[in-house]
Write a protein that binds this DNA or RNA. Structure first.
Lengths: 335, 335
DNA sequence: TTGTAGGCGTTATCAT
DNA sequence: ATGATAACGCCTACAA
């Protein structure tokens, strides 16, 4: 029951270690019966190839690194979970690392992964990412927060937001507020453009009045104060609906409305973005635009495993979002 | 700029590869200046030791596996994140795996980790865990859902719940309902005992009337129906406060109360358990018992790295919980 | 304290 | 299609 190696298998199967190795690696040139015999012995002996030895020789670690800003964020944790499942299906494992949105830590983590000789990295860049550079020669796929110069995969934020805003427009809303993400965030700007797309196509949007866009971080508290800002006005100037760039913002905004005594959805419709589980746990349930996180994760893994061709540098793979109707949206009340 | 190895360093530093290796591994018997010189060269050359070669020879992978039921659960994602930070501080990295609470998948993942030769495993067993066996010889620390026969680390659920219930008792509540976790879950039973501890110590708890305990899964929907069950009674038989075994249950219960027109905290106090970020995002903010997840994670890592002695098999390390007062608790109304 | 050399378990090259 | 054998890059006795 001590360490059983490839030679033990070879000896018992009456073949050479080379053949066993070929069986292990699905090399085509192995007879069916030899393969069967060897596989039998492998199972009998409970032989497990040593990944270190393997990787030392073959330069393949079957390890994928994933670096995200914050695992506590449900969006990212779902991303990691999906990636883990996808990778495991191909015999790959995932090393997770969190940068805590700290560029220095992020750089350090990427360095660690490089020296670990992972076969590829899935990266969600921290917000002040521009300060670091990525090692060339190691496949990296940037996810969600796309960056020029790297292969990127994400959901189609812009179009997703457009869908959500159009949902509000169809209900009859015209004064639709928008809580934007941080101005230096790529996806935040994509989402903002989606809002503008929808509003420009609609009628009656060029009215006067106070601005309908508030910039905020993606978190709950920021959403709340942005909501306060947008809602603290005379009723006929106040938006009848608000689209928030994240579910957490939307929930913060719900809280703000609640504190101001504005009933949802009677006097205010709210739509969030992300589709995290939390969205269905609010009272009332949040209407939101769901990102296809699983698709994104699976595609990222597929690219790194060469099961799918990498996207061109400035032509990311985008997956469509979908409106998930909850209970926070209704036709507007007359002024 | 091609692959720089230990010999390149050795040559440039004018020493042997053995010495370089010793420098790399902080071996004590290396002169200060030799060490300095070698380290200089290492930095100059940007030399990074090959972890595969290293681990093949030394049998140490500097890798820790962590297997949890579900990364989407905020409790577990915080656990993983904390573990990652703790491990990184010691030059270790984390391989995450999710069992999706599926025993077969869990067994498979543990097998993968074993063959990866990780230096240790942090395991949160899936609920039907008893069906699989753990490999001996590999350090494993069981976290949160303790199991007899393995070193365990967790927060002190029983005492934590007691604190939470005592908080309600101090406010004057006597009819305190309890939403329990699944009956086959170890922590669920610990929590239940904490509730019983507190209630037995209090006065006036042995009244007649319908049962005050409802068993449910830990999730939102289960909490909601358990809440409905406990609250669908005449006002003077209905609990004036409910302690839920998880924050998600508590939030589901809030929803149930809301649907029944029972104001919180005026007519019903609610306390949750876990202290996930979500708890502070509800309206009103949930009062909850916070688990010291970071402490648990750090301790688990420390045990695996031999920075701390492992707990005895049936004497787990427990960390104390803490009541986080929100806005869902108030003195009871008179009947 | 430092150098030398063997071998860790596998894969890849070259024959056969 | 299979076998023999030399690396892969490093650690660790052992020797000096």
């Amino acid at each position: 029951m001590s360490k059983v190696g490839i030679r033990d298998v070879a000896k018992l199967a009456g073949v050479s270690t080379g053949t066993v190795s070929r069986v292990l690696n699905d090399h085509p040139s192995v007879t069916k019966d030899v393969r069967a015999r060897v596989e039998g012995i492998i199972k009998d002996l409970g032989y497990l190839p040593d990944p270190s030895a393997r990787s030392m020789r073959s330069k393949v670690s079957r390890l994928i690194g994933i670096v995200i800003p914050d695992l506590t964020n449900p969006f990212f944790s779902e991303l990691v979970q999906s990636a883990e499942q996808a990778a495991a299906n191909h015999g790959y494992n995932i090393i997770v690392m969190t940068s805590l949105d700290h560029a220095a830590k992020e750089a350090d983590r990427i360095r660690q992964l490089t020296s670990r000789k992972v076969d590829g990295i899935i990266l969600v860049p921290s917000n002040d990412f521009h300060t670091i550079k990525l090692p060339k020669g190691l496949p990296i796929v940037v996810v969600d927060r796309l960056m020029p110069g790297y292969s990127g995969i994400a959901s189609d934020h812009r179009n997703g937001v457009r869908l959500g805003v159009e949902h509000l427009l169809k209900l009859g809303h015209r004064r639709i507020g928008f809580i934007s993400g941080p101005g230096d965030s790529v996806p935040a700007n994509d989402r903002l453009r989606g809002y503008l797309d929808a509003m420009e196509q609609a009628d009656g949007t060029k009215m006067a009045g106070p601005p309908l866009i508030a910039e905020a971080a993606f978190d709950y508290e920021s959403g709340r104060s942005a909501g306060n800002y947008l809602l603290a006005r005379a009723r006929n100037e106040r938006p009848t609906a608000i689209f928030a760039s994240s579910d957490q913002q939307a929930i913060g905004c719900m809280r703000a409305a609640h504190d101001l005594g504005i009933p949802i959805p009677a006097a205010l419709s709210i739509v969030g973005f992300d589709g995290i589980p939390l969205a269905s746990m609010t009272t009332p349930r949040l209407t939101t635009v769901k990102q296809p996180i699983q698709d994104v994760a699976a595609a990222a893994v597929a690219v790194l495993l060469n099961k799918r061709t990498a996207p061109a540098l400035d032509n990311p793979i985008l997956f469509p979002c979908e409106v998930l109707e909850g209970e926070t949206t209704a036709p507007p009340q007359p002024d």
